[in-house]
Every structure is written in C-alpha cells, then in structure tokens.
C-alpha cells in the first residue's frame, strides 16, 4: 500500500515537472490564435529550454555567489512545492498535517533568493523588478490564505490533499463560495506567475516589467533554470485551480484524468483570453487589484458563514 502511494506521488510529481512547459505553450498557442496568428507549436517551450541548455553562461561582473545559487534554489523549491500538489486522486509525495503553510513558505524561499539575485547585479533595471516583486508579494500572500486557507478552516483540515478532498458540491452556498474562491486563486495565479494584467511575460524592454526584468542579466543554464521554474510555477497555480473540480473524479482513474485535462485546457483558454483582451495595469494600480481579490475573498467567506 505504502509503495503504491509512493509510486503515485512520484508519478504525479513527474507529470507536473514534464507537462509544465506544455501548459505555457498551450496558453501561447491559444493567444496566437486569438490574435489571428498561427503561432508557435505547443511544444515550443521545450525547444526553447533545450536551446538555452546549450548556451554559454554569461554572468555580470558585479554578480556574486547569490546569482549562481538562486536559479538552483528556485527550481528545487518550486519542485518541492509541486510535490505537495494532488493530481487527480493520487496522494501527493509530500502530504502531512500543515503542508498548506509549508507550501506558501517554501515558495517564499524561492522569492527571497530571486529578489536577492536580481539585486545582485547592481543595475537599477533589476532593482526595479525586485522592488516590485517584493511589494506585490506582500499583497499576494494574504490572497492565498484567504482562499485556500478559508477552505481549510471550513473543513478543519490542514493538508492540501485533504483540503481539496473536503470540497463537496452538494450545497448551493458552498458551490458559490468555491466559485468565488477559484476567481481569487485565478487572480493570485496571474500575479504570482507574472501574467497579464499584472506583468507582461513577453517583454522586459519597458521599465514596467517584473519577472522578466529580474532575470535580464541571466543566460545559459541559469536562464534555463529560471524559465523552467517559472513554467512549473504557472502549472502549479493551474493545478491549484483545477483541483477544485476534484469531487467529480474521486476514485475513478480515467474520469479523473479526463477532468484534469479538460479543466486544464479550459483554464489555459481563459488565461489566453484574459491576456488577449486586457492590457497591463499601471504599476500603482496593482496593489488595488490584489486588494480587490483579497476583498472578494473576505466577503465571500463572510457571506458563506452567514448563509450556512
């Protein structure tokens, strides 16, 4: 039994790690179709990663050991976070009472070193991105706890796997609650993964970008690690969203996989739609946008508790 659980956990981790670039490619492809282009193939991110892997690494002269370890820390912590996510009905590799807190904090480790690595170059380009990342993270963290945390508090469980399995769609107010929660998670995903309308993943040339500008002075395998971990991160947040649909796929292999695939596809389509039809916000409006997500999370929770 233990061995089966372990295998399931490892398989789902491998699935996340291997399919993550595909998800980003999927979003890009749909975006291209929306704007009337043919677009790069869905597997394009894999080619890009492969290309980066074979490039020479160039470090800035002012860079220190921080720049060198930060991409490594990034990819490892993101992989550890991925190992806590349940796919389908499989119990994740890392699952214990309180892993929801570890999940949030382990991503904090990645962020800490990414900000440091950006500041390591000593250029104000990266500095600007780093300052913004630090600022928006302060507002993004509460959203995570107001959404997943509130589901945890309602169910009284503190393990991600159990929390998602406690979602039961048999009560109208609970369904509404979960839907609003998923909207908040979507906003969180947009922020954390530097997508529109918070950040533009396609450019770093404007002085307005966050994630892309932080990794501006990286190349070769460092850039590979950063890119790969940002793909994984995007997929992680996508799974946070798709996992709300658990109750439909409990204890049935094929159904679970089909639901997972379909919901992921829908999610990528909605990401692509949002990115096509909206323009990026002014930087100073982003905290308001995040507070808006927090506010609907709070309201939602209050409404749910009083209608229960």
């Amino acid at each position: 039994m233990g061995l089966i659980l372990l295998t399931q956990g490892i398989i789902s981790l491998l699935v996340i790690l291997s399919l993550a670039p595909m998800f980003a490619g999927l979003v890009n492809k749909q975006k291209a179709i929306f704007t009337g282009r043919i677009g790069a193939p869905v597997v394009q991110p894999y080619y890009e990663l492969k290309r980066l892997l074979r490039k020479e690494t160039i470090n800035a002269t002012s860079a220190s050991f921080i720049s060198s370890i930060s991409p490594v820390i990034n990819v490892v912590t993101v992989a550890i976070a991925a190992a806590m996510l349940p796919i389908g009905f499989a119990r994740p590799l890392i699952s214990f009472e309180g892993d929801i807190i570890l999940f949030a904090y382990v991503l904090g480790l990645a962020r800490f070193f990414q900000i440091l690595a950006a500041m390591d170059i000593g250029s104000s380009f990266e500095g600007m991105g780093a300052a913004r990342e630090a600022t928006f993270a302060v507002f993004a963290e509460p959203i995570f706890f107001f959404t997943l945390g509130s589901v945890a508090f309602i169910s009284g469980l503190t393990s991600m796997y159990d929390i998602y399995h406690s979602v039961r769609l048999d009560n109208v107010s609970y369904i509404v609650f979960i839907i609003v929660c998923s909207i908040s998670v979507f906003i969180l995903a947009v922020t954390e993964c530097s997508r529109m309308p918070v950040d533009d993943p396609n450019t770093h040339l404007e002085l307005t970008m966050i994630h892309e500008v932080m990794i501006l002075d990286n190349s070769g395998i460092d850039l590979f690690l950063y890119q790969y971990s940002s793909y994984i991160k995007l997929f992680i947040y996508a799974i946070l969203e798709t996992s709300f649909f658990y109750p439909f796929g409990v204890q049935n292999y094929t159904l679970a996989i089909v639901i997972f695939a379909v919901v992921t596809l829908i999610l990528s389509a909605s990401l692509a739609t949002v990115e096509t039809i909206t323009s990026r916000f002014k930087m100073k409006n982003i905290p308001e946008y995040l507070l808006f997500a927090t506010a609907i999370g709070v309201l939602n929770l209050l409404i749910y508790t009083f209608t229960k």
Partner: peptide, 16 residues
C-alpha cells in the same frame, strides 16, 4: 549546473 557550464562555457561581462 557546474557540469553543464564546464561543457558549454562560462564567462563574465559587464551588466546590461
């Protein structure tokens, strides 16, 4: 990572 850097090269240059 160090192994790959050995293989494909590594150098420093002023920041962009």
């Amino acid at each position: 990572k160090r192994f790959m850097q050995e293989k494909y090269g590594r150098r420093t240059s002023p920041a962009w």
